[in-house]
């Protein structure tokens, strides 16, 4: 019997992805240059003899530039990224941007909500929205599961483990802190 995954298509022909291959080393190069430039602005106390706080940053900046150049040259020689394999990842698929955008939006919602609305509510929103984005239907179901998980985690962490989490409007409700 074949134990391959049902929707696994034969290896996709190499797509024209040369441009994004250079994007990462370009970013590295920019970071390296920034590190070198910014390192020069680190204040060096007079008391510092020998090696001050700038030396290591210079070294890291140089390493980043070196790595960026090496990767860039590798790409020019025809080295291509090997996408990481995973149990739940269809490596032959193209990036599903709408789903990524929805997940990102859900995460931003969490960041915005967590302090005013409290962890239980913010986490419910995050869980429900992410699960829904990844295909859980109908919406009510991931929201219910999310609420259950969020409340359980909140009670476990605040009441049992004594970690602070914002309760938001649930402040003062017994068990929520």
């Amino acid at each position: 019997m074949t134990h391959a995954l049902p929707e696994q298509a034969p290896a996709a022909p190499e797509r024209a992805r040369v441009w994004p291959e250079y994007a990462f080393p370009a970013g590295l190069l920019a970071l390296g240059v920034f590190t070198l430039v910014d390192a020069a602005t680190i204040a060096v106390p007079v008391s510092t003899n020998t090696v001050g706080p700038r030396v290591f940053p210079y070294a890291v900046g140089a390493l980043l530039v070196l790595a960026a150049v090496l990767v860039g040259l590798g790409v020019r020689r025809g080295e291509r990224a090997e996408i990481e394999d995973g149990e739940d990842v269809d490596t032959t698929a193209a990036t599903d941007w709408p789903t990524v955008a929805k997940v990102a939006a859900a995460f931003i919602a969490l960041v915005v909500l967590v302090e005013p609305a409290g962890f239980p509510i913010a986490a419910t929103v995050l869980f429900g929205a992410v699960a829904w984005s990844l295909g859980a239907r109908p919406l009510l179901r991931p929201v219910l599961v999310g609420a259950l998980i969020a409340v359980t985690l909140h009670v476990l962490f605040t009441q049992v483990l004594g970690v602070f989490l914002p309760a938001g409007p649930l402040e003062g409700v017994p068990g929520f802190g």
Binding site: V114, F119, F127, G146, I149, V163, L165
Partner: peptide, 25 residues
């Protein structure tokens, strides 16, 4: 565990852990 729930759970737990260490957004 359906994948949507699994990854939603991972993300929720990740957010919880990161917030818990410093209580800062």
């Amino acid at each position: 565990i359906p994948r949507p729930y699994l990854y939603a759970g991972i993300l929720t737990f990740a957010a919880l852990g990161s917030y818990a260490v410093g209580a800062s957004t």
